[in-house]
Design a protein around this nucleic acid. Structure first.
Lengths: 348, 348
DNA sequence: CTGAAAGCGCTTACAG
DNA sequence: CTGAAAGCGCTTACAG
């Protein structure tokens, strides 16, 4: 015997009606017991408990929410770039924790920067009647959410503002953080600072590049086009771009605008033996960054704070807050580990 | 004007009945159109399309599944150790992709190794009537799932078998992989091999420790208790344990049985300047492992393959497969990067 | 305090 | 090919 459920012995799940019959009460009394209504006679509560225990009864929450006033499903949607990327998954965890404390479950999905998937997934979530949606957007036109907001679905954006601004958005201080990071590099006296980053069409890359330019301008340093590379979407692309830039227009410092780019740059620097010569600060923290020699100095975001703040805003909206949508900016933090503080002039 | 939905102008969502009235047809015809029943007259299809477009109608899928035969909700649950840990999140992504192709959504949650949370979360998912559950278990008694299986919920386990074996489980070849990893260390001639790992109560830790012992026994090497540390649950604990073991009973090689432990060991080796002297192989891959000097040699699992296989098995069960539950073992792969192949005798 | 009737938004089963 | 009736498993609104 395997203890395994064979199809031919599959039983139907008992309903409230079955419990009521066994307990000898009306189904409304069973409903009251499972909803913790306090005005039920103790002996009836006991009989209902016994009957549902014997039958293995469990209430059907989706059926309940269908009739329940307000029609809340106690489910929210969370649309991320990719549930398996570290930034997204830390946001996810924070949202999960916030939601769990309120008895709400999270339907998460990956958009892979695909605007069509954003639309499809949003529609799917709406067809399931989620109460709200937190979204790290892939598209750049969000007018389609207006009808949904009017129908009662709340939205909060993460990382990139909706356009036009129809809902709250939680972002890191990308521009200010990048500016501070680059200033940190300039402080050592270095002047040939390279920028390696994601596609400039991406909001965060655009902001961080602007911060890079801000810092150079403030220091009276020219921004040299041969030291700038956009459109880096993977570790491999970043490594190749870094190799090339280090060979041709050698910079004495590098600002990498994102996680994967930073990893690629680190790999290139180590290959070329330049990791003690060319300074590096990355935007976004990376695992093991402290175990490398030198440690990678980064301007760290706080994805958990982003997730918590987004969830907080979403639940406020779901609870009726109808104030004007706003941009909520969260600070970033410089984490000094060595790569951004190499001696200058270089002593190698 | 903000374009934002104010509570006082919130409209009710149109229903099938509203669409039917506007299109001048019965609601069953609207239902047929939205379910792509091919036998509807083209002009009626057109009128329904126009009416639902004008009203912004979207079908309510939870209401549909309530009456639909079989009662599928097209939702599965995924209970992970922590959605934000790399292993879990790669499993998650693979499950998402498999489910998406079948129009199924994933409700994911983190158990944090808490048996009570496992029970609670499973119950919550069942109250939502998910069609199946993939679970990386935290508890060690799974008899409570028998009733659910009889009621039609499918289960597949990941990483650790249910006890007793009531459902399929997908595991990596922990014992065989660990054995191979340790043999790899012994091949260089090293004999004082240390083991640092997670709580021995944890199934995977137990299996990997068994593989460690297998390899020593096969090589005729004694297992020295002073070279073994269990119960390491964080980077910090692992670093401290590694420091201590390296100072007192100096090993010439280390096998670390898990991700976080490997990171802690790497940090300790670098601090003590032993990273070119003491060989290291870790179980589980770690990010940036290739950028460190030396690169970290690991016995890598394939979390994406685990997720895909678990999803495949779950959907087969949901589609009526009632064969006996089995243990499905996936191979691991040695990724050579340097730390496991240091010259011996040590030349430092 | 308790329960029978009506209804949530759909689909099933059936009649035309 | 089309639609009115009944029902999915609950909650609401109401009467006793």
């Amino acid at each position: 015997m395997s203890g395994h459920a064979h199809a031919d012995e599959r039983r139907d799940r008992p309903t409230m009606r079955d419990v009521a019959a066994l307990a000898g009460v009306g189904i409304k009394t069973v409903s009251r017991v499972f909803n913790d209504v306090p005005t039920v006679a103790p002996d009836l509560v006991e009989r209902v408990r016994a009957a549902s225990g014997k039958l293995g009864y469990r209430p059907n929450l989706t059926a309940a929410s269908l009739r329940r006033s307000g029609g809340r499903t106690n489910t929210i949607g969370l649309l991320l770039e990719d549930v398996s990327n570290p930034y997204s998954s830390f946001v996810h965890r924070a949202v999960e924790d916030y939601a769990r404390n309120r008895n709400v479950l999270v339907l998460a999905g990956s958009l892979d920067e695909d605007p069509d998937r954003e639309r499809e997934f949003t529609r799917t979530l709406i067809d399931r009647r989620v109460d709200g949606i937190i979204i790290m957007p892939a598209s750049d036109d969000h007018r389609y959410i207006i009808a949904e907001q009017l129908a009662g679905v709340s939205f909060v954006f993460i990382d990139r503002p909706p356009s036009p601004l129809l809902a709250d958005v939680v972002v890191s201080d990308n521009r200010g953080g990048a500016r501070t990071a680059v200033q940190h590099l300039l402080n050592s006296g270095r002047r040939a600072v390279a920028y390696l980053g994601d596609d400039i069409e991406v909001y965060t890359a655009r902001e961080r590049f602007a911060g890079f330019c801000d810092a150079l301008a403030a220091a009276g340093v020219d921004c040299r086009p041969e030291l700038v590379r956009h459109g880096l979407r993977s570790v491999d692309q970043a490594r190749d771009a870094a190799r090339e830039i280090l060979a041709s227009a050698p910079p004495d410092a590098i600002f990498s605008s994102q996680n994967l780019v930073t990893i690629g740059v680190v790999e290139a620097l180590h290959e070329l033996g330049l990791h003690h010569t060319v300074a590096l600060v990355g935007f976004d923290d990376v695992a093991l960054a402290g175990a490398i020699e030198p440690g990678v100095t980064v301007m760290a975001q706080d994805p958990a704070a982003v997730g918590t703040e987004a969830a907080r805003l979403l639940f406020e909206r779901m609870n009726g807050d109808d104030s004007a949508p706003a941009i909520h900016t969260l600070p970033t933090r410089l984490t000094v580990r060595g790569s951004g503080e190499l001696p200058w002039p270089a002593t190698t």
